[in-house]
């Protein structure tokens, strides 16, 4: 099976607003925004809090722990660059801090269930380290 690090796939486009997320990811850390006014976490990055519209967002490292809200085993990828590693898992990860993000899910034989506990698993995909998630050993 082809290594994920060998894939020729599209990566993020860095800009000042999202740079803290991708810089932290490269270091194996998951950082998202937190609103000092309404005390809620925000994902993906915004200039202003989408919950209370206060200009009070800061970057914080989060636990990297969450729950699998849904998943799919992708047999026919939408982007041809992913064909060498199909079938693979993508899933919706509800972070313990609240927000949900979509990520690449690593699990033995692609065996997962909705509700599974997940932990951050920084993984090199193409030329960059991305915040993927791994199923916790039960």
């Amino acid at each position: 099976m082809t290594d994920l690090s060998q894939l020729g796939v599209a990566g993020p486009i860095y800009e000042p607003l999202n740079q803290p997320f991708w810089e932290a990811a490269a270091q194996g850390v998951l950082k998202i925004q937190h609103c000092g006014a309404c005390d809620r976490h925000v994902f993906y990055p915004r200039p202003i809090c989408p919950h209370c519209w206060a200009d009070a967002l800061d970057w914080v490292a989060v636990s990297g722990r969450g729950r699998l809200k849904s998943y799919s085993e992708i047999w026919k990828p939408g982007h041809p660059g992913w064909i060498p590693v199909a079938p693979y898992l993508v899933g919706l990860v509800e972070l313990d801090e609240g927000p949900t993000l979509l990520s690449h899910i690593l699990a033995q034989d692609n065996h997962v269930q909705i509700g599974d506990r997940l932990t951050l698993a920084p993984t090199q995909i193409g030329g960059r380290v991305l915040p993927c998630f791994r199923k916790d050993p039960s």
Binding site: A10, P12, N18, S70, G78, W82, V90, I125
Partner: peptide, 17 residues
């Protein structure tokens, strides 16, 4: 920016989820 890099692109993935 935040879905495609993880291997999710296109409507099929979204509706599968």
């Amino acid at each position: 920016e935040f879905d495609t890099p993880f291997g999710a692109s296109g409507a099929n993935t979204s509706y599968a989820l």
